[in-house]
Every structure is written in C-alpha cells, then in structure tokens.
Design a protein around this nucleic acid. Sequence first.
DNA 1: ACAAGGATCCTCT
DNA 2: GAGGATCCTTGTT
Length: 201
Amino acid sequence: MALITKRHLARDALDVAHDLLGAEFRRGAVRLKITEVEAYRWPDSACHGCHGRTRRNKTIWGPPGRAYVYLCYGLHQLLNVVTLRDGVPNAVLIRACEPVAGLSVIRRRRGGKSGPVLLTGPGKVGAALDLGRRFDGHDLTQPGGLELHRGAPPAAVLRGPRIGIGYAEEQDLRAPWRLAAADTPWVSHRASLRSSALPLP
DNA sequence: ACAAGGATCCTCT
DNA sequence: GAGGATCCTTGTT
C-alpha cells in the first residue's frame, strides 16, 4: 500500500470523503481502516472555519494533506484530514474506523473494550491513535509518525446528515455529507444513514 | 479575569 | 433516548 498524495487531497472535502472510505491510518503498530467520515466544506455554517481564522482552527485554513486535530468538549481529540487548498477551510472528519492491526494497543487505549464500541465515534478514533494537539498540522502524506495510506474502497456507501451540528443553519444541518461503508458494523448512528440511492430521512 | 458553549462519550432507563 | 461529565477555546469585560 502507498501513502495518499497531497494532490489527491487537493479537492473538495465531499469528493475526498468518498475516497477516504477504505483508506488506512497507520501509527506504529496500530492500523485503522476508515469506515465513516463527514465532509466540512465552504461555505458551510457547520465548518469550524465559518467564523474566521483563530489559533485553534488555523490548520483547517492551511494546505491539504495535514491533520487538523482539535479538542472537543474539553476532552476528546478529533481528527480531520485537511482538503482542497490553502486559504479555504475544508476538511474531512474521521468518525469511525475498523481495526486492521495493533488490536491489543487499541484496546488498552480504549479501556479494554472490544467490538465496534472500540472505534465507532470520532473521539474514540483519536483515543485509539493516542492523538493530541501536538499532531495538529502534522503532514499525513509524509512517512513517519501518523500516516494515511490508500486502501480498497467499500462496495457500497451509505449517507446521511452530519452528527452534532445543531448550531448550523437548516440547509447545512440536513446536507447528506456524512458517508459510511455499507458492509461493516464499524459505523456509528446507523439509524440516520440510507443507501446513497434512496431519499434521505 | 470571566462566562459560555462545544463536529462526544458513557451510563443509565 | 436522555442527561451528566468534563475542561479547553474563545470572545467579552
């Protein structure tokens, strides 16, 4: 498998989100296959960049291919892949993964749990990779530390509205920019997902 | 210096 | 499905 190129990530977050399903994060012994993502775009009232650039969110405004890691609710480290181009806030949030390798390390970092509860939620992914703000701005397209590799895409994709963005405007609240692999139990909030061929809930 | 709120998780019922 | 935990980041005084 090969690292995903910066050029591949230099597109709109929704396009990149489709391609990231099946891709793989690697850090040391831990390898995680991406099963669920959300696109945050521009303009988009749910995107962290929508109120301008701050010290916390500056990475999402930067060039594609970097990790945007931020602290949510004071305790969860959430991982995004920055997309599109420098100067526009655009990113893909990693919401869930399936373990490929390093299960014992993952379980230890997640309180000894097992099954999909290990990795179905963005804060859980951050915990399993032991992320922190020191990874904010890390280049995922270069070898070393945290890496993003290509992988086989899922046979079918589910889509639905994004989770936890009640503060957003109506149109963005309903936009079907959450994507998940259809052929895996490693997905959160299944109830609001539909086959991409069917109308939304 | 202070108050408000958040791209969540876990434990119940 | 609902509610509390938890504490950093931000904008305002």
